Simulated scan of single mutants.
Amino acid sequence: MTGKATSQAWSSLEEAAALAAPPPAGKRRALDWRVLLGFLLPVLIALVWEAAVRFGFVQGRLVPPPSRIIETLTNLAATGELWIHVWATLWRVSVGFFLGASAGIVFGAISGSSETARRLLDPTLQALRAIPSIAWVPLFILWLGIFEASKVALIAIGVFFPVYLGITGAILSVDRKLIEVGRVFRLSRAKMARRILLPAVLPEALISLRSGLGLGFMFVVAAEIMGASEGLGYLLVDGQQMGRPDHILAAIIAFAVLGKLADSLLVGVTKPLVRWQDTARGTL
């Protein structure tokens, strides 16, 4: 029995080492090609768009070619104006995401783990979720003024609801057999939460955080339109007022790049938390 146990232990160690080892060179090259594949569609659209303008199929005034948008972005970056707007937007989204996600996790955990709390909180929160984002703007301006507090509050509202729904749904969807196993082993509530509930809800919770981050970037546009003097949303409004579609599209592209980078950062930071999952992602 001792020899068998030792061989099983060595097998487990070898499997763990194989999982922890870096991927082979061939697989790394395949991953590199997958990353490059993600750029294929936007580059192809940009080339077709550029050719359509140059050959006169569409007007270059209302639909600027990518070359003009790149020139606008380069000029804005050279003068430092672009970085001012990017930093202002990124700061607002970061603070609003932190506040909204924190509140969503707390209320989602309370609502998901207690039926009484869920019956008390969920109807009100679901009603508030149905309110359009723009409807909060006059109230926040009246309460918090036109400066940063009202903008951050609006973003936090946008982040809160998907995180709350994701956390609540993840807790409610935990397999009942897992809870029964924890009770059989007489785990305390703290150990039950740490060893069973937390690993079970983490994948869906991380997806809800990504959804909340995406809505944070959507809500920051509404927040910056309502009276900001800095930010990519302000750059959008300024381009519309000045009749500069290149500025509008430059701001939209900056939003897309900034949102993608923020989402990739969130995925990269949280990926070690779900490394234990044995999913079909790598085989499809």
Score class of each variant (00 low, 15 high):
residue 144 L to M: 15
residue 117 A to G: 10
residue 118 R to V: 04
residue 201 V to I: 15
residue 223 A to T: 07
residue 264 S to R: 13
residue 13 L to V: 13
residue 281 R to L: 13
residue 147 F to G: 13
residue 208 S to M: 08
residue 159 V to T: 01
residue 212 G to D: 01
residue 232 L to R: 01
residue 140 F to V: 03
residue 214 G to E: 01
residue 228 A to N: 08
residue 98 F to S: 01
residue 146 I to R: 06
residue 145 G to I: 06
residue 69 I to H: 03
residue 129 R to S: 04
residue 72 T to I: 04
residue 254 A to M: 03
residue 86 V to H: 02
residue 183 R to L: 06
residue 99 L to S: 00
residue 200 A to H: 11
residue 130 A to Y: 00
residue 36 L to A: 13
residue 186 R to T: 10
residue 5 A to N: 14
residue 119 R to N: 14
residue 200 A to C: 02
residue 139 L to Q: 02
residue 211 S to L: 15
residue 229 S to N: 13
residue 161 F to N: 00
residue 110 I to F: 07
residue 203 P to E: 12
residue 174 V to T: 15
residue 57 F to G: 06
residue 32 D to H: 09
residue 36 L to T: 02
residue 104 G to P: 05
residue 179 I to C: 04
residue 41 L to P: 08
residue 201 V to N: 08
residue 14 E to D: 14
residue 261 L to D: 08
residue 111 S to Q: 09
residue 79 T to D: 13
residue 130 A to N: 07
residue 51 A to P: 00
residue 56 G to I: 10
residue 122 D to F: 12
residue 203 P to Q: 05
residue 238 D to F: 11
residue 164 Y to H: 10
residue 221 V to I: 15
residue 235 L to W: 00
residue 103 A to E: 00
residue 126 Q to A: 11
residue 107 F to N: 03
residue 262 A to I: 02
residue 121 L to C: 04
residue 137 V to F: 11
residue 210 R to D: 04
residue 158 G to R: 01
residue 133 S to C: 04
residue 273 L to M: 14
residue 101 A to M: 01
residue 241 Q to V: 11
residue 97 F to M: 01
residue 199 P to Y: 11
residue 213 L to F: 00
residue 195 R to C: 10
residue 167 I to T: 06
residue 263 D to Y: 02
residue 20 A to H: 05
residue 35 V to C: 12
residue 65 P to W: 06
residue 73 L to A: 08
residue 251 A to H: 02
residue 194 R to E: 12
residue 115 E to S: 10
residue 194 R to L: 13
